[in-house]
Write a protein that binds this DNA or RNA. Structure first.
Length: 420
DNA sequence: CACTAGGGATACAG
DNA sequence: ACTCGTCCCTAGTG
């Protein structure tokens, strides 16, 4: 994922930071990076189509941790997938299926640890799994938005338009998309590494002092990205050298061809499409309440932009953003009867006992109970469902939750005492 | 020598 | 038929 080897070359401008240094700021969170780790604790249940609250607890603990340090989180979810990545996703789906079969086989033989390892590689983070979390976010008044396509672009849109101050993620693609401020690899204690684009001129390993945004974009694509594999033997260092010398990817490719490197005739067109995909990705504008491009498409650009995925009408885009309909099937999430499928079973049998009521987040005993009936009314009223801006109730709730957390932290982490 | 690509170990939770 | 791994080490290549 992302750009292989990019973050290590930027090590000199990546600084250790703590969530409390972002107090008073708003953060957009790449929720997939949380879910990916969170599902490991209950991958067996999820593979069998059974619900398990553990992954929700994982995410909510992080939400509460951020709130405790005064950071206001906005959770961003992935939406539909792009046709450009379809062949890669077929491979991944096949790999998951193979791992699931192996898990079942190990389990039959009684080797539970080996089975568990395979289950972890077999988990599929479906929109239904994300939806369970979204339901809890609504109850707890946490802001969220489901992107029409890639979450990465949505995160950067929120940052560029000042809806948030920074982005929390694990993915180096955020740099390629042009995100000004990023908090990488944040752990459960709030420790991670900070990055800001304004430091880029001071980088040591590779010299980017005279690089424009466009040159950084082209350097990253040339080193191999999700939308275009790299030429053999070309990584970050060599693509950096090429772009530094020739300034544009067209000239760099000409040079390689003159040197005798044979380049697929489709490659240059693919390169152009990759650039456009990063620059003009489709995102949801929570103010206009409609689908827009990450950055405006110039009028002189006559290229067909079908590879960005279809443009969706306003009502559909909003329903997706609010998490009311599945971004891949457009089916309503109200009905849970389809979520009880045993993934391993090709006959798609429906399990008993998973299609009913209770899906709520079991609040910790130390934390105050939250009145969910009022929040539901709020949601029904339709005033601002998916992107609830700060209101008094949320502030009060987060204050109470913070106090609960203070008690927990005081009990198990003596370092925090100095804060109070 | 610098760099890229691929394999192995590993993750979460309590 | 429903969404993305990553780090470290090393062999092999330009």
């Amino acid at each position: 994922m992302g750009i292989q080897g990019l973050l290590p070359t930027l090590k000199s401008i990546m600084h250790p930071r703590h969530a409390q240094e972002y107090a008073g700021k708003r953060a957009a969170i790449d929720t997939y990076s949380w879910l990916h780790k969170a599902v490991l604790s209950c991958s067996r249940d999820l593979c069998h189509g059974r619900h398990n609250d553990k992954y929700i607890d994982y995410c909510m603990r992080r939400v509460q941790m951020l709130r405790y340090y005064g950071v206001q989180p906005v959770l961003v979810f992935d939406g539909g997938s792009l046709p450009m990545k379809s062949d890669q996703e077929i491979k991944r789906a096949r790999s998951r299926k193979e791992n699931l079969e192996r898990a079942l086989e190990y389990e039959r033989l009684g080797n539970h640890s080996a089975a568990y390892e395979c289950y972890q590689r077999a988990v599929d983070i479906t929109p239904a799994i994300a939806f369970r979390l979204i339901q809890v976010l609504r109850q707890e008044n946490v802001q969220y938005v489901v992107a029409p396509y890639e979450a990465d672009a949505q995160l950067v849109f929120l940052a560029l338009n000042r809806h948030v101050d920074f982005v929390i993620t694990e993915d180096s693609d955020l740099i390629v998309y042009g995100c000004p401020q990023i908090f990488f690899k944040m752990d459960k204690h709030g420790q991670g590494v900070g990055f800001q684009i304004s430091d880029i001129t001071a980088n040591k390993d590779i010299d980017l002092s005279d690089f424009t945004k466009q040159m950084i974009l082209e350097m990253c694509i040339m080193s191999g990205c999700d939308y275009l594999p790299s030429l053999p033997g070309i990584g970050v260092k060599r693509s950096h050298g090429l772009i530094k010398r020739f300034r544009t990817y067209q000239k760099a490719l000409k040079h390689l061809e003159a040197k005798g490197v044979l380049i697929d005739p489709q490659y240059e067109q693919g390169f152009h499409r990759a650039i456009l995909t990063f620059r003009h990705h489709r995102v949801y504008d929570p103010v206009k309440k409609e689908m827009v491009h990450l950055t405006g498409v110039p009028s002189e650009l006559d290229t067909n932009l079908d590879f960005l995925g279809p443009h969706l009408p306003q009502t559909t885009a909003t329903a997706i953003a609010r998490g009311e309909v599945d971004p891949t099937t457009f089916e309503s999430f109200q009905d849970f009867s389809s979520s009880g499928r045993l993934v391993a079973d090709s006959n798609a049998t429906v399990q008993n006992g998973v299609s009913n009521k209770k899906v709520g987040f079991s609040a910790k005993k130390n934390l105050p109970a939250i009145n969910s009936s009022r929040t539901h009314q709020h949601h029904r009223s339709g005033s601002r469902p998916c992107f609830q801006l700060s209101d008094l109730k949320a502030a009060l709730v987060s204050f109470l939750i913070s106090w609960g957390l203070v008690c927990i932290l005081l009990a198990c982490n003596p370092q925090v005492e100095s804060l109070v």
